[in-house]
Design a protein around this nucleic acid. Structure first.
Length: 225
DNA sequence: AAGCATACCAACCGCAGTGAT
DNA sequence: AATCACTGCGGTTGGTATGCT
C-alpha cells in the first residue's frame, strides 16, 4: 500500500495514507513550531515525509478548526455561487467557508455539483432552443441559470450512501488526534502524567535525537527526559 | 456469492508565485 | 539581478466502500 522511494535508508520518503502515530507526531511538532517551515518540520519530527506532504496533511485533516461531516445546503449554495463567480479558485472559495478546505470543496464540486450544473445548463439550453423554435415573442424571456434550481434537483439515489458517510465521518471525528489536546500536554505542567508518558514513549521512544531536537523548540517542556 | 461499475475522497504531482540571500 | 528554497494552488490519480447485475 504505502510505498517508498529513495536511494539510501535515511533518505527514504514515505508516501501513501498517514498512520495515526504519524498524525500525532505531526500535530505535536506543528503545535510547537507553527504552521511554517514544513521542510524543517518534516526533518525535525523524524517523519519520513516530505514537507509538502506534512503541510497537506495538516491543512486538510489535522487542523483543529476543521469542520467535519456533510456540507450543509447553505454551504452548497455558497460553493455554487462562488464557483460560477470565480471559476475553479478553490482556495479563494474555501476562505468563504470556514472549516472547509480547498481540497474538500474541490472534491465536493466534482462529485456532487458539477454533474448537476451541467445537466441544469443542458436543460436550459434545450429549453432555449425549444422556445426559439416555437415563438419569437418569447425569445427574450429570462433563461438565466439559477443556483437554487440546481439545489432543488432531487437526488434520492445518494441518501443511503450519505448515511454511511455520516457514520464514517463520526468515526473519523471520534478517532481524531484532537480528542486529546496536544497543546495542553505540552503547556500544562512539569510533571509528566502516565498518559503524557505514554505519548512521550510513542513519539520519542525510538529516537532520543528527535526528543533532543524537540527540546530545543520547547525548552522546559514536560517532554524533558 | 462473485465480479464489475461507480462514487467518494485522501494524497500526490507539477507548476507558479514569493521572499530571502 | 540571479538563484534557491519554500509555499500555495489546481488538476489528477489511486484506494476503498458501496451498489448493481
Amino acid at each position: 500500500m504505502a510505498y517508498q522511494v529513495g536511494m539510501q535508508e535515511d533518505s527514504i520518503v514515505r508516501k501513501g495514507p498517514w498512520l495515526e502515530e504519524e498524525d500525532k507526531r505531526l500535530a505535536t511538532f506543528v503545535t510547537v513550531m507553527g504552521e511554517r517551515r514544513w521542510d524543517s518540520i518534516a526533518r525535525v519530527s523524524g517523519l519520513r515525509r516530505s514537507g509538502k506532504s506534512c503541510r497537506l496533511r495538516w491543512l486538510n485533516y489535522l487542523r483543529p478548526d476543521l469542520k467535519r461531516g456533510r456540507m450543509t445546503t447553505e454551504e452548497e449554495r455558497t460553493i455554487l455561487q462562488l464557483q460560477e463567480q470565480w471559476g475553479n479558485k478553490w482556495s479563494k472559495i474555501a476562505r468563504s467557508l470556514p472549516g472547509r478546505t480547498d481540497n474538500e470543496i474541490k472534491n465536493y464540486w466534482r462529485t456532487h455539483l458539477r454533474k448537476k450544473v451541467q445537466e441544469q445548463k443542458q436543460e436550459v439550453s434545450q429549453e432555449e432552443r425549444t422556445n426559439a423554435a416555437s415563438t419569437s415573442t418569447r425569445s427574450n424571456e429570462k433563461t438565466k441559470f439559477e443556483h437554487h434550481d440546481v439545489l432543488d434537483i432531487e437526488d434520492t439515489s445518494k441518501d443511503s450512501v450519505d448515511g454511511v458517510h455520516e457514520l464514517r465521518n463520526n468515526a473519523l471525528l471520534a478517532s481524531s488526534p484532537y480528542e486529546i489536546s496536544l497543546l495542553d500536554w505540552i503547556s500544562s505542567s512539569n510533571q509528566t502524567s502516565p498518559k503524557q508518558q505514554q505519548a512521550q514513549n510513542c513519539f520519542f521512544g525510538s529516537s532520543s535525537t528527535d526528543a533532543e531536537i524537540m527540546l530545543n523548540y520547547c525548552p522546559g517542556s514536560p517532554w524533558e527526559i
